[in-house]
Amino acid sequence: MAIDKTLLDKGIKYLLYALPLMFLGPSIIYNAFINKQNVWHWLVLAVGIVLCGLAVYFMFKGVKAITDALFADKP
């Protein structure tokens, strides 16, 4: 069972993209809830939710790429 190194590297890159987004998204959402009196509250909240969604997307894509690289049936 051979490991596809390029696909493995791609999966690790996706996980590295998700790592800062996992911290940045909730921090921005928290900041939006703290500053409810601000006019930009809804925009900041939407940006935080989008960043959290991107973190989840990159995590799933990275884990899928890694599992495909490890468990692919290539001769």
Rank of each mutant, 00 (worst) to 15 (best):
L43V: 14
D68P: 04
K74N: 07
L19F: 09
N35L: 09
Y14H: 14
L24Q: 03
D4F: 01
K61M: 13
I29F: 03
I49P: 12
L45K: 04
F33I: 11
Y14P: 02
W42G: 07
A32K: 03
K36P: 07
I3N: 07
L45Y: 05
Y17Q: 04
P26S: 09
L7N: 05
T67G: 06
D73Y: 08
P75F: 10
I29L: 10
A2D: 01
C52D: 06
G48P: 00
S27I: 00
V39T: 11
G48L: 01
L43E: 13
K5S: 09
S27D: 08
L43N: 11
M59R: 03
Y57G: 04
I66L: 07
L24W: 03
D9N: 15
A32L: 12
A65N: 15
L51Y: 02
I29H: 09
V47F: 09
T67K: 12
I66Q: 08
L70R: 13
G48E: 03
F60Y: 02
K61T: 11
V50Q: 06
V39L: 10
F60H: 07
L54P: 04
V39I: 15
F58Q: 07
H41P: 07
G25F: 01
D9F: 09
D4Y: 01
L43F: 15
V39F: 09
F23E: 06
V50I: 15
I34E: 10
I49N: 10
I34T: 13
I66F: 02
C52Y: 00
A32F: 13
I3Y: 08
K10T: 14
L24M: 14
A18N: 10
V44L: 10
K64S: 09
F33Y: 14
L16Y: 12
M59E: 01
V39C: 00
Y30K: 14
P75V: 09
V50M: 15
V47R: 06
V50P: 02
L45P: 05
D73M: 09
K36S: 10
T6K: 08
M59W: 05
G53S: 09
A69M: 01
W40C: 07
I3A: 04
P75A: 13
Y30R: 11
D73I: 14
G62M: 02
C52W: 01
D4R: 10
P26K: 03
K13R: 15
Y57A: 05
V39W: 07
L7K: 07
A2I: 08
K61W: 03
A32V: 05
F23A: 05
A2F: 08
K61A: 15
A32Y: 03
T6V: 04
P26I: 12
F33R: 02
A18K: 08
G53W: 02
I3H: 06
M22C: 00
V47A: 09
P20A: 05
L7A: 00
G11H: 05
A18C: 09
M22W: 01
T6C: 06
V56L: 12
I49T: 08
Y57P: 01
D4A: 04
I66K: 04
A65Q: 11
L8V: 11
W40R: 06
Q37E: 09
W42T: 04
K61L: 14
L43W: 14
V56D: 04
L16I: 05
N35P: 00
I12V: 15
M22E: 06
M1S: 08
A18D: 06
I12N: 06
L7I: 04
Y30Q: 13
Y17A: 15
A65C: 08
L7Y: 01
L21S: 02
G48V: 02
D73G: 13
D4Q: 13
